[in-house]
Amino acid sequence: MVEKCFIPTSLAEALEIRKETKARPLAGGTDLMVQYKQGQGITPVFPWPVMIISSIGELRGIEKGEDGSVLIRALTTPYEIANCQDVPYPVREAASRMGAVALRNSATIGGNIGNASPKGDLPQPLILLDATVVLKSLDGDREVLLDDFILGSKKTDLRDDEIIYAVRIPKVEYTHVFYRKIGTRRANAISKLSLSCLIRVEDGAVTDFRASSGAAGPKVIRSRETEAILKGRRLEDVKSLIPEVLDGWNRAISPHAMPEYRRNTTRRMLEHFLLESVSASSECIIH
């Protein structure tokens, strides 16, 4: 079988190839080259045409918008994201804990989203921040909420003539923020569980509260219903509302394996974040 493989050097060329052949983009290779490997000395075999997009300069880089949003183009690596102060804390933190040094130099944000693994590290904090995905095709651009774009485990809403161009993170104000990834060891660990939380306290009132869970169901979990429990409440009332929040969150997540462990640990992290936020005197990162 002669496999089709294209190496476009511009976005325009890539979009043409995508439309004509439905070839799927391959960027860092850190997921796909493992998934379709054949063994030592043997070239990986893919069940569809492939285009290697790693040399397309238009798909690189991070840009800060005038409205405070941050645009991260698809080929940006976790190393670049982790080292860019314009990127919000939980996303930077997640990027800095992906794999180990070499993987962080090769993997891409576009790949991490397109692969849509429930254990992918970047979608979780991005969904917390209501990030959108910018998709390009010869017919034009489309921008959708990442939470809507990822449909489930390994499933996205990507059309077969589209390419993931970038992720846009809107400006989100918060006073306290938290990110934690739980893996079997510090390097090269696939997430067993991850959680991001943020809260915004203004004049003693909670004006925003969000949480998102990774690896606790087929896709990243937000629960607007649970988040609403704290919104608009006085800070001093938060402590007494924690059981209600934990209960709501417990119902929202749907761990596929070791559900008891995942539920307990998620509840403990969420409780820790809320208790620490209530007692913290000023804006801070909760560890």
């Binding site: 391959l26 860092g28 290779g29 290697i52 040399s55 993987l103």
Partner: peptide, 8 residues
């Protein structure tokens, strides 16, 4: 992990 086509 890297295909040779990605190192042009």
């Amino acid at each position: 992990l890297i295909p040779v086509g990605a190192v042009c």
